[in-house]
């Protein structure tokens, strides 16, 4: 044989799907929400987002190159996505050095120390966010008010968010539902524009990057739980729709909780995971001391994920009972 043939086990073809394709799909799905935040939060949003992405990519490159001494993994797009998601969870007037610390924690502590993409237990962006929330509580909880094409950055006017109204029981001061839907409220960069997040989620569903199980089970649980509370005591608790539209719930349900690495793999497990996130979120929002609980809820359920994977098995074909 002049031309040596290649030999391998079947299958000999591949779907062409790749990690980077999935990552870029998620990034594309986040773009509408980014545009809305650029409109409402202006310069601050742009600065925080770009610094977050740049420092995530940089840290991933440096750690991979000099500490782990492995081939660079920045091309798969996961660092860009982590940076984007981290920025989406930060207020737009956050000093940039704090953003960089968050990126270092997200990439260095939550991702690379476990062995890079695929081995981390907790969602890196959320670890970064929660680290910042605990370390810099003041900066992390002063959210700028939305203002079209805002050019102020650190000096942006800040104010209470819908969630703080809920917490303090001033339900009458909750903004208009339509404002909450399009993102004309105070909050973190990426979480305000519910409509843009839903659009992105639909895109991911169509591209089969995510399945409906996790987002729907989270949202439904939150809706039912807060609905029961509302019926029990309408003057104390906000209506379920406001809960759905405020805070990081939509961002968390569609983009953070569905992170492949840290969510269960079997559909049944995904529903359990989603219900768990929903219940913990409402508990923290309503009974806890923090106004927002989505991040903590997702991180807690991330920790339970290996257990869910171990016990939730898919239905076997021809299972003998």
């Amino acid at each position: 044989m002049e031309n040596k043939l290649y030999v391998s086990m079947s299958p000999h073809i591949h779907s062409g799907d790749s990690i980077s394709r999935k990552m870029w799909d998620v990034i594309i799905a986040l773009i509408p929400a980014l545009l809305v935040s650029l409109y409402f939060f202006g310069l601050g949003s742009l600065l925080v987002t770009s610094v977050s992405i740049a420092s995530c990519v940089l840290f991933e490159y440096l750690i991979g190159r000099f500490l782990l001494k492995q081939e660079s993994s920045i091309r798969d797009g996961s660092a860009i996505l982590t940076g984007l998601l981290l920025a989406f969870n930060l207020p737009s007037n956050l000093p940039l050095w704090i953003v960089a610390i968050g990126a270092l924690v997200a990439i260095g502590m939550a991702k690379m120390s476990f062995g890079g993409l695929g081995n981390n237990i907790f969602n890196p962006a959320l670890v970064g966010r929660v680290f910042l929330l605990i370390s810099f509580p003041q900066q992390m909880t002063s959210w700028p008010l939305p203002k079209a094409l805002n050019l102020n950055y650190l000096d942006a006017a800040t104010g209470a968010t819908p969630l703080s109204f809920m917490k303090s029981g001033r339900l009458d001061r909750l903004p208009d539902t339509l404002d909450m839907f399009i993102g004309n409220t105070g909050g973190s960069i990426g979480e305000v524009a519910t409509v843009a997040l839903i659009l992105g989620g639909l895109f991911l569903l169509i591209r089969k990057v995510i399945s409906w199980h996790i987002p729907v089970s989270i949202l439904l649980t939150v809706y039912i739980f807060t609905g029961i509370l509302r019926i029990a005591s309408p003057e104390l608790y906000a209506d379920p729709l406001s809960h759905m539209l405020t805070g990081g719930l939509m961002l968390g349900a569609v983009f953070m909780a569905t992170d492949y690495v840290t969510s269960p793999m079997v559909k049944k497990g995904q529903v359990i995971y989603g219900v768990g996130i929903g219940i913990i979120t409402v508990c923290i929002r309503v009974f806890g001391s923090y106004p927002e609980g989505v991040s903590f809820a997702i991180l807690m359920m991330n920790g339970v994920t290996p257990l869910i994977n171990a016990y939730c098995k898919p239905k076997r074909f021809g299972e003998v009972k």
Partner: peptide
Amino acid sequence: KTNQYEGVSSCMAASLLYGGD
């Protein structure tokens, strides 16, 4: 060599597939 193996780098897997390269 008479052919090129490009599967998993495991003798066991290769021996299940065929006689060798």
